[in-house]
Design a protein around this nucleic acid. Sequence first.
DNA 1: AATCGCGCCTGACGGC
DNA 2: TGCCGTCAGGCGCGAT
Length: 278
Amino acid sequence: MPELPEVETVKRAVSLVALGGKVGAVQFHREDLRDPIPIERFQSLVSNQIITDVTRRSKYMILTTSAGHAIFHLGMSGRILILDSDQIEQKHTHMVMAIERKDYAAKFLHFIDPRRFGRITCCTHEEKNSFSLFRDLGPEPLEHDFDLGKHLWRKSRKRSQSCKAFLMDSRNVVGVGNIYANEALFRAGILPEKAAGAISLSRYRLLATEIVSVLNAAIQSGGTTLRDFFNALGKPGYFAINLAVYGRNGQPCLVCNNPILLQRIVGRSTFYCLSCQH
DNA sequence: AATCGCGCCTGACGGC
DNA sequence: TGCCGTCAGGCGCGAT
């Protein structure tokens, strides 16, 4: 499910009900997802605390309390639903967090993840800056206070790997997963297999612009719907209809009508147009 | 140091 | 109908 736009969409929905609320009971129905869940620590840093902030870093959603941070990652198949009941209605619900508010009845944040590639963890305020999950992350593409194109260009010098692999490496820039890497490279007219180190500054500037615009467009339309994405209130997003290349192999390029091609690059399906991308 | 392949899981889908 | 192979939006580890 989730790339940055989907996590951002979930974060905004969670923020509406969680910000200023108080965490009540947190029930875990598994002790591990991708990694063991530090349940006792989670209970002490998060349960019975007021939620002072709901943020996103890379593809992690973070609930902040005065004691620390609850950290969620949705992996490939994770979802967060905000429901009126703590009753489990999904086969793979691994955690239910009560959120109590003064102004209306409690809501329940359900964490669901069939493949269990996601994570639930936590850390204190002191730990956050050096926390292993965050330590090596690159910049946020949607923060406007730096030159993303120049950053990518500088980081990619002497790199032989494909520009698509480079783009999807969160140490270089966060939040660009397989769908939006394909889309951004198409919009920028760059061949995904081209070596990252062989691309000019001006083309990286264009690529940066397209990354930002495709991510913003996706957020705008509430996240991509593929098989199973629903935002936190259970409404489907509608962005998938706007994808220009992802999943369109064999179909005509929307710009030039030549067929969209499919190739594997570093193990991921890569869709591109040979006449539009160089 | 940089790069790549693989494995972690379940579920959906298509071919036979 | 069911069985089997393949594929899936992410990421971290180990081998080279």
